[in-house]
């Protein structure tokens, strides 16, 4: 399954992140994860939200430059070695990770690791499926409720 990450181009100066979070708040968009990477005087804000399409349109309406990208959100175990299992698997299959970040779903039980694998999307999905690792799509991500998602 494929998840969608929004990337927002932002200059590296005060107020840019606040603008993004302000717009998302107004649009009642819930954030699953956020990362910021910066280079020199500019950077990219990556967000994983419960409603990617909706978020994209309100951000663009506000004049921001937004790009939507396919990423894979893999469910891993929230215990020592949980992430390592996934990463070793990717390595064995020659899959390169361009960007990645994670968040906890249910403490000590489940976490999500989001990977951007560029053009190796299909291959990665296949490898994960063979290894019986669960992936979440946009819908599943939006259904996440803190601490009890997998129990229902």
């Amino acid at each position: 399954m494929i998840a969608y990450q929004l990337s927002i181009f932002a200059e590296d100066k005060p107020g840019r992140l606040a603008k993004v979070t302000g717009i998302l708040k107004k649009g009642k968009i819930n954030l699953r994860a956020i990362t910021i990477s910066t280079s020199d005087t500019f950077g990219v804000i990556n967000v994983l939200v419960d409603d990617p399409e909706g978020a994209r349109s309100i951000l663009e309406e506000a004049g921001l430059t937004v790009s939507m990208k396919e990423v894979i959100a893999v469910v891993i175990e929230d215990r020592p070695g949980g992430l390592d299992r996934l990463v070793q698997l990717l390595l064995e299959n020659g899959i390169n990770v361009g960007n990645a970040y994670g968040f906890v779903l249910e403490s000590r039980k489940k976490a999500v690791f989001v990977v951007d694998v560029g053009d190796q999307l299909e291959k990665t999905q296949r490898v994960l499926k063979e290894a019986s690792l669960e992936t979440l799509d946009a819908k599943a991500l939006s259904a996440i409720e803190p601490f009890h998602y997998m129990n229902y």
Partner: peptide
């Protein structure tokens, strides 16, 4: 042009 990739911008 913006694809969300910092490397591309750089």
């Amino acid at each position: 042009f913006f694809s969300g990739d910092l490397k591309q911008l750089e």
